[in-house]
Design a protein around this nucleic acid. Structure first.
Lengths: 353, 353
DNA sequence: GAAATATGCCGAAACGATTAGATCGCGTTT
DNA sequence: AAACGCGATCTAATCGTTTCGGCATATTTC
C-alpha cells in the first residue's frame, strides 16, 4: 500500500503549473504510464483494482489526454476537412450542417474551409490541410485540373472525396447529384405544361453542375425536337445577384420566354427578386422552376417548383466513402455515387393555353 | 562538400515508406534539423547558402512539417473552435462563413461544432475541444450555468469568447447585439404607425436574446403607457416551425393583433408562411416586423421591416478579442462588446388609420 | 513438484518537431 | 599575437503519449 504516500504528491504536480499529464496520473495512482494509457484506451486488460485507482486519479486530476501527443504517436489527427466552394451559399451551409453531425458521429472533428470558387484559395487550403495532417478531406472542387500536389510520394492520393462536382478526372471518390436528370425533370414538366420558349440561367460551364444542368435542359427539349434560343441560355456564377441581373435582362428582352429554369436555389431567389422588382407576377407572367433549394423557401409565394437534393443522405454517403477510404488506403479504385434529385411541385409554373 | 554524397541517400529515406520528416530534409541538405527548423520558421538567421540548400531539399522532398509534432512541442494547435447553438439557423451559417475568413486571416483553422441548443451536447463538445487542445473557443452558449469544467487548474478559464449570448455570469469575454434596443426600435416604429395591439413571438426566456428582445418590446410599449396582452407574448425556440404554428394560433385567435414582432429571422419566415397559408396579406391584414435577417430575404415580398445585425463586424470583433485573450492570458478582466442593430425599413408594416 | 504457459504490469524507446546551450570559425580589438 | 566576441550552426534534451518487449507472479500441465 505504498501508493498512498505518492498519492499525496500529485497535488504538488498539479499545483506546479500546467495541466495534468499522463505521468501525473500514473504517479497519483501509483502505476506506470503504460497502465494509465491502457485504462484510457481500453487497449489491454487491467485489473479492477488498478483500473479503479487510475480512474479515480484521472477524475481528481481532471486529466484528459493531449491529442497533439496522441496524434503524433498514432499518426492520425482526428480531423476531417470540409472544403466548400462558397460558404455564403445556403446549399453549402446545409452541407456544413449535415457534415458536422456525420463527422461527429464517426468520432472526428470537422475543420471548415471556404475556397470561394477561387483555385488559388483551394491550393492554399489544400496545403493547409496537409499541414494539419487531416485524416480525410471532403472537397467541393473548384479547380478541375489534376491536383498533383495532393498526391503522396507513392503516387497515391491522400484520402479525399469530391462532393457535388467531379474533378481530377474522377480519380477521387465522389458523391454527386444527377444534374442532367434534375434539369430534365424540370424541363419535361415545363414542356408538358405547354411551354416552348424556355430560358435558363445556369452555372459556370466549367463545372459539372453548370454543364450538366444545361445539358439536361437541352436534351429534354431536343427529345421533342426543340432547342432553347441561344440568347435564352445564360451561364454565370451560382450567385443571387448574378441571377438577378441576368433575369432582368432576359425578362426585359424583346422575346420574353414563357418559362425560366434557374439552375440553383440562390439563383431562383435572384430571379424571384427580379420579377418582384419588375412588377411581374409568377406564374401569371412567367413560370419559374429551379434545381436545388434554400432553407426558408417555404415562406416564398408562389411556392417554387424545383428539384431537391437529398443533402443529408449525400453528406452521409460522402463521409462513409471517406471513412472507408481512410481505413482501406488509396489502393482501391475510386467509387462514384450519384444521387437522384426529386421533383417538388409548387405553383410557380402555370400551363400555357 | 561532403553533403553531396548524402544527398543521394535521401531517396532511400523517401522510398522507405512514409512522408519526409525534418530529419530527411536535414540529411538531404547536409545540415542539422535545427537549421531546417530555423529556415522553416524563420526563427534565426541562416546563411543564404544553407538556406538555399534547405529550401531545395524541402521542395524536392515535398516536405511539410507535421503539425502534431509541432503542436506538441509548442503547446498550441492552430485551431479555433466555433461552437454554434444551431447550425441549421441561417444566422449561424452566416457566422460560420464570416468566422472562417477571420480565423484564416489570423492564421488559424476553424473547427465547427453544433450544440443544437442542448446543454449535454455543449458539455461533450467542450470536452472534445479540450482534447483537441484548441487555442481558443468562440462559443454561442447554451447552458447559462457556470462552466467549471472549462476552467484550468489555476481557476482561470481557457481562452473563450461568448458570441451572441451572455452566460457564465459574464466571466468570459463576449460580443453581443443590443437586443433591447433592437426590439425597441422595431416596437417604436410600429407604435409610431399607430399600432397598439402588438404581438410577439420571441425566443426562449432563458437566453439573453429571447429575454432582451421581449424586454425591449415591453419597455417601448410601457414608455407610452401600453403593454402587450399576455396571450400575445409567446416564447419558444428560434425555429421556423415553432414560429409557424405559434403565428397561426395568434392570428386565428379571437383578438388578432394588428402587428406582430418576430424575434428572429427564421421566425419571421415561419410567420410569413403562416400568413400565406391562412390566405392573409401582409401588411394589409397584419403588419410584420422582425429582428435579425436571413439570406435571400430580398426575394420575399413584402420586403420585411427588420433590424439587422452587423454579423461580419461582430465576428471580426469576437475573433479580435479571442486572439487578444490567447496572447494576453486569462488575467485581464473580461471585455464585453455590444453592437447596435440597424432598423431596415421594408413594406411589411402599414400605418393604422 | 518442475516446467510450461498465462496474466498483469512496468520500463523505456519511439513519434517528429522545437530550442536551449554548446561549439566552431573568423574577424576585431588590444 | 593572443584574447575576445559574435554570428552561424549543431547537439541533444524535451513535449505527452503509445506500445513493444520483458519480468514477475499466478495458473496450468505432465
Amino acid at each position: 500500500m505504498g501508493w498512498k504516500i505518492v498519492q499525496l504528491t500529485w497535488l504538488t504536480g498539479l499545483l506546479s503549473g500546467g495541466v495534468a499529464t499522463i505521468r501525473d496520473v500514473a504517479k497519483a495512482a501509483g502505476v506506470s504510464t503504460a497502465t494509465v494509457s491502457a485504462v484510457v484506451n481500453e487497449s489491454t486488460f487491467v485489473s479492477p483494482a488498478l483500473r479503479a485507482r487510475v480512474t479515480a486519479a484521472i477524475a481528481s486530476l481532471d486529466y484528459a489526454p493531449l491529442s497533439a501527443a496522441r496524434n503524433l504517436k498514432k499518426g492520425r489527427s482526428q480531423l476531417i476537412a470540409l472544403v466548400v466552394s462558397d460558404l455564403a451559399n445556403p446549399f453549402f451551409a446545409r452541407v456544413v450542417w449535415s457534415a458536422e453531425a456525420a463527422v461527429a458521429a464517426w468520432g472526428y472533428s470537422q475543420v471548415i474551409f471556404n475556397s470561394d470558387e477561387k483555385p488559388d484559395n483551394e491550393r492554399r487550403i489544400l496545403a493547409r490541410i496537409r499541414a494539419l495532417s487531416c485524416d480525410g478531406v471532403l472537397l467541393v472542387p473548384v479547380d478541375t485540373r489534376v491536383r498533383a500536389d495532393q498526391r503522396d510520394p507513392d503516387g497515391h492520393m491522400s484520402p479525399m472525396v469530391h462532393f457535388g462536382r467531379i474533378a481530377d478526372d474522377g480519380r477521387a471518390d465522389s458523391v454527386t447529384i444527377d444534374n442532367v436528370s434534375a434539369a430534365k425533370q424540370v424541363t419535361n414538366y415545363l414542356l408538358d405544361l405547354g411551354h416552348r420558349s424556355i430560358a435558363t440561367i445556369t452555372g459556370p460551364s466549367h463545372l459539372t453542375t453548370g454543364r450538366g444542368r444545361l445539358k439536361g435542359l437541352q436534351e429534354a427539349m431536343a427529345a421533342r425536337g426543340l432547342a432553347p434560343r441561344p440568347e435564352h441560355v445564360r451561364s454565370g456564377e451560382f450567385r443571387e445577384d448574378v441571377a438577378y441581373s441576368v433575369a432582368r435582362e432576359i425578362i426585359e428582352s424583346a422575346d420574353r420566354p414563357t418559362a425560366l429554369y434557374a439552375a440553383s436555389g440562390v439563383m431562383a431567389l435572384g430571379v424571384m427578386r427580379a420579377l418582384a422588382d419588375l412588377g411581374l407576377r409568377c406564374p401569371d407572367d412567367i413560370s419559374i422552376a429551379s434545381t436545388d433549394t434554400i432553407p426558408g423557401i417555404g415562406a416564398l409565394r408562389p411556392r417554387l417548383t424545383r428539384t431537391e437534393h437529398p443533402v443529408t443522405d449525400m453528406t452521409n454517403e460522402a463521409l462513409r466513402l471517406l471513412i472507408d477510404r481512410i481505413a482501406r488506403g488509396s489502393g482501391a479504385t475510386p467509387r462514384h455515387v450519384v444521387f437522384q434529385p426529386a421533383l417538388i411541385l409548387g405553383d410557380s409554373c402555370s400551363p400555357l393555353p
